[in-house]
């Protein structure tokens, strides 16, 4: 079932007099299903943040519509269901984390006891308990990011919108947030996730949409990138002709173009017959790879193609 539907949405910014209008989002359509982790990726200026802001009602689309559980945004109370973490959250300098969470809870209709319990739980999980009474201006960038996550999750929202959640985090912080997202996924939350760290997107998302210049380029299923690496060998070979490709495929291997040559994916069971064929046909092996296709390669390739 669709939780959020973005239907033919366009948005143009007017930077002011005598300046060219900027088309941030152009006829964008996709849907986010209940309980899935949906990743929106794209280069800077692809319209990711604009899409999120339209979803939150901070800006209005010029055309198209956004539906939340089948109802238009204006009539739906999405704010009660949503937890939002912006990229580089700017929080109130002179407030403490406890005060910030208390504000968040009160505006979300929580009672003080609930705020206390849930706040404590999140602060423990995100390792902010010791800093709970410190003014937010004394927090490091990573701590502010984690405080922003606490703010987004306090009212236990069913949809979590994360705009670059790993930005500014050290490897330990990243792991912490990564595990938290996995935990939210297990709890059945719908997660809408924007990030430039494609490795995280690849590992976390059930579905991924690639945007560039405000347009949707491609949508992928998470499985498109994940292979059972333990049981598969990826070999980079010299270029294969049509017949050689068919022969490899008939022996149980998969073939795709990779630079000047080809990349073969061979399961452990089929490795010997394919290898014998490669030796017999004098096909040169140039190296091996750890994955079939990375999101990063695909991202760069697609964006380059579109720019041309």
């Amino acid at each position: 079932m669709s939780e959020i539907q973005i239907l033919n949405v366009s948005k143009t910014y007017n930077p002011g007099l005598f300046k060219k209008k900027i088309r941030a989002v152009n006829d964008l359509s996709f849907e986010i299903r209940r309980g899935e982790v949906f990743g929106l990726i794209g280069p800077n200026g692809a319209g990711k943040s604009t899409t999120i802001r339209m979803l939150l009602g901070l800006i209005r689309p010029d055309s198209g519509s956004i539906l939340f559980r089948g109802k238009p945004l204006g009539t739906a109370t999405i704010q009660r269901e949503i937890g939002y973490l912006p990229e580089n959250p700017y929080l109130y300098d002179h407030l403490t984390l406890l005060e910030l969470l208390s504000f968040c809870g009160q505006t979300s209709g929580m009672v003080p006891e609930q705020i206390k319990v849930r706040g404590f739980e999140l602060m423990v999980k995100l390792k902010l308990l010791e800093a709970q009474k410190r003014p937010l201006r004394t927090f490091s960038k990573g701590m502010l990011q984690r405080a922003g996550i606490c703010f987004a999750l306090l009212h236990d929202p069913s949809i979590v919108v994360l705009d670059e959640p790993m930005s500014g985090l050290d490897p330990i912080g990243r792991k912490m947030v990564f595990d938290l997202i996995l935990e939210l996924k297990e709890q059945g939350k719908t997660i809408f996730f924007c990030s430039h760290i494609l490795n995280d997107v690849e590992r976390l998302c059930d579905r991924i949409a690639l945007t560039n210049k405000g347009e949707l380029i491609k949508q992928f299923e998470g499985g498109d990138f994940l292979q059972d690496i333990d049981k598969t060998v990826f070999l980079h070979t010299s270029s294969l002709d049509e017949f050689q490709q068919q022969s490899v495929q008939s022996l149980g291997g998969s073939v795709r173009l990779e630079g000047e040559g080809h990349l073969l994916a061979i399961s452990a069971d089929n490795y010997h017959p394919v290898n014998s064929y490669l030796e017999k046909s004098n096909i040169k092996i140039l190296g091996c790879r750890s994955e079939w296709m990375s999101l990063e390669n695909l991202f760069i390739q697609t964006v380059k193609e579109q720019d041309q």
Partner: peptide, 13 residues
């Protein structure tokens, strides 16, 4: 100015 308002208005206010 600092876009803190994005966070605030993401709540039911």
């Amino acid at each position: 100015d600092r876009k803190t308002i994005h966070l605030v208005l993401s709540k039911p206010i």
